[in-house]
Design a protein around this nucleic acid. Structure first.
Length: 186
DNA sequence: GCGTCGATGGCA
DNA sequence: GCCATCGACGCG
């Protein structure tokens, strides 16, 4: 049984959503083709108090989408060359989001999706998709109640500047997948 | 297998 | 002057 993920599901807090999205499937309809990939790694960004979260900088032009309704895409450029794909989570205004870090292609399609920058490039996620409603028909997620991932958690990657928040175990991954980008360090 | 480093551009 | 990254390179 597989069904499209709805607004009410995205409205869960980011930590719960990040865990629940492991094993779900990204669907991108692009140039008359359909690309599907199973999510194997995510990170939760908990809102303005979370020093690793962009929303901790407050409402700016960049972070505006994070403070909007859940279930929209938050896409931004990092290091001048990589796009990050996030999903807005929580109640409207809470500034939470889930970063999609890694996935594995489904249906015989071949791609390396084991990292947030590689994932957006291979899936064709563009900056123009910032703010896109993910319950539409172009880019959406499916939940498969049959697939049971082996979920583990660890600290988030690349946020060592975030004080006490850097240590919190807000990264979730499917330990049975080879596409996970980082294995936990002790 | 692991550490280091450069690429590259939007943002505050 | 930062970065929610990646891949190339040098080790030995």
């Amino acid at each position: 049984m597989t069904r499209k993920i709805t607004h009410s599901f995205y409205q869960q807090d980011a930590e719960t959503l990040a865990r629940d999205l492991i094993g779900s499937v990204i669907v991108h309809r692009r140039r008359s083709r359909i690309y599907r990939a199973r999510i194997v790694e995510t990170e939760a960004y908990m809102g303005p108090d979370d020093l690793a979260s962009h929303s901790s900088k407050g409402r700016t032009k960049r972070t505006e989408v994070m403070f909007g309704p859940a279930g929209r895409a938050y896409v931004y450029l990092i290091y001048g060359m990589y796009l990050m794909f996030n999903i807005v989570a929580g109640v409207t205004g809470s500034g939470q989001a889930v970063l999609i870090r890694a996935a594995e292609p489904i249906d015989g399609w071949k791609a390396d999706l084991s990292g947030p920058g590689k994932l957006t490039r291979a899936l064709g996620i563009a900056r123009s998709m910032n703010g896109l409603d993910l319950t539409g028909s172009r880019l959406y997620l499916l939940r498969n109640s049959r697939y049971q991932p082996q979920i583990r958690k660890a600290k988030r990657i690349g946020v060592d500047y975030a004080g006490e928040w850097q240590h919190k175990k807000l990264r979730f991954f499917d330990d049975s997948s080879a596409a996970v980008s980082h294995r936990p360090g002790t």
